[in-house]
Computed example of a mutant assay.
Amino acid sequence: MIKRTTTYIVYLVTAFAVTLCFSCKGKGEEIRKMRIKSDAAIAEGTGINLKYTDSGKVTAHLKTPLLKDFSNASFPYEEFPEGVEVTFIDDDGKENIITSKYAIRYKNTNLIDLQQDVTLFTSDSVTLNAQQLYWDQSSNWIFTDQPYTLITADGSRNDGDLFDSNKDFTNFVSLNNVSKQYVKETTEDQ
């Protein structure tokens, strides 16, 4: 009688285990979807220190305390909720540095939206301050529709309500400017 009861228990446990295995088959994807909220980041990184290279040369250096990757969103993006510092290095080794307290990089458009105390400091000592600044990585174009301040190495200053320029500031458009320019005085003998 004991042997028969033990046999029934073994059959019952085996049947239960087999049923569990077959009922879960193919459900892995559904289970993963339930665990990840559609609006949650699929990856997070802390203490990020990335170097971008092109043909073996470092072209950019990105530092951020926190990176959230939303590649699962219908319009994929990366969020830098605690700020970002990026150093761009040109072919001559000159560095341009940009910082902000918050940033988003949209993967499909290569557009970066920098917000809150944005500062761009160029290798030739030009400083651009704004509350929001966009950078189009595809065309190397910088623009904002917010007030900004541009200060050159000699202290000349330009305040405006709109800024649109290539990365070298050689093609520059601004709206509602108030400027203070320093001009070197020369004598007729020179």
Rank of each mutant, 00 (worst) to 15 (best):
Q146R: 14
T109P: 04
K63L: 12
N177P: 01
G56N: 05
I97Q: 07
T152W: 05
A153Y: 04
A153P: 01
T99F: 02
T99G: 05
T170R: 12
Q181H: 10
S74L: 07
L111G: 00
E44C: 04
D164A: 07
A60F: 00
I9Y: 03
M1S: 13
F172S: 06
L67M: 15
A73S: 13
R105G: 03
Q132C: 01
G83W: 06
D124Q: 07
Y52G: 09
E185A: 13
D69G: 04
F80S: 04
D145M: 07
N166Y: 03
N49D: 15
S179Q: 12
S100M: 06
Q131M: 07
N49W: 10
E188A: 14
D189G: 02
W135M: 08
Q137C: 02
G28T: 09
S156L: 10
T187D: 13
L150T: 03
S38G: 10
F172G: 02
T170K: 15
P81A: 01
Q131G: 11
I89R: 04
I142K: 02
V173A: 12
G28P: 01
K68C: 03
L66M: 12
Q115K: 15
Y102F: 14
Q115G: 01
S55A: 14
A15R: 04
K94F: 06
S55Q: 14
K101C: 03
F22N: 06
N49A: 14
F163C: 06
S100L: 08
R32H: 05
F121K: 15
Y148L: 12
R35N: 08
R157N: 13
L120W: 03
N96Q: 12
T53V: 08
T6C: 09
N129L: 11
N177F: 00
T152Y: 06
N158I: 15
T6L: 15
A43E: 11
L150Y: 03
T119A: 08
F163W: 07
E188H: 05
I97G: 01
D161F: 02
T119N: 10
I104R: 12
M34P: 00
T53A: 13
F121Y: 10
K63A: 11
L162D: 04
K101N: 15
Y8T: 05
F80Y: 15
